[in-house]
Amino acid sequence: MKQITVPFLANLAKILSGATVRWVDCEPDICQRVYFANHTSHLDALVLWASLPKQLRNLTRPVAAADYWQAGPVRRYMASVFNALLIDRTKIKVHNSPIDMMIREIRDKYSLIVFPEGGRNPTGELRDFKSGLYYLGKKRPDLELVPVYFDNLNRVMPKGEFLPVPLLSSISIGSPIWLEAGEGKNEFLTRARQAVLNLKQ
C-alpha cells in the first residue's frame, strides 16, 4: 500500500506546487544529511521529499511535531507513510532530549528534514532558529547540514488551509555547512539562518 500512496502523494504535491528544484553548489548524495529549511506550509517536507532522487527518498525522514501529527487518523497516517520522526514538543526535558532521539533514530543510515523555526510561519518571513540544529551539529559533526529555501509554497497552501492552489514555487538547496571548531551557539544559528536566506535571491 505504501508503495502506491507515497509516490502518488509526493508527485501530486509536486504537480500542485509546480515546484522546480535548484541544487545550488550541492549535489544529491546518499551521505547522511540534515536538510534545514524555512517552514511556511504543510507541503514543505512533502515537496522536498518528492524532489529528491528515488534512492534518497527512503533514506530521508522529516522531523515533525508529535502533538500535531498524532491528532486524528489522517495526520497519523500521513506521518507514518512518510516515516516521520515525531518529536513531542511539550515534553522536552534534559533526560528526554529530542536531539538524542534523532541521533538514535537516524543511526548511520538516515538523513533528516528539519524546520529549525519550530513551526509554520504564516507571514513567510524567516524567524530565529531554535537551538536543535546546533546540538545536532555538535553531537554528530559528520552530518552535512544542508540549507533549503522554499519559495512561494506558503501561497500554494498556507497555514490553516487544507486545499492547495496550484501556483508555481521553487526549492533551492544550498551547499552544506558544518559547525566550526569553537563556534558559539548564537553565532552558528545566525550563520545557518543566513545560509537559508542567501538562497532567497
Partner: peptide, 12 residues
C-alpha cells in the same frame, strides 16, 4: 497568479 501578489484571504 504566481506573478501577481494576492493576500492570504484570497486563497479560497
Amino acid at each position: 497568479i504566481t506573478m501577481t501578489p494576492t493576500r492570504r484571504a484570497d486563497h479560497r
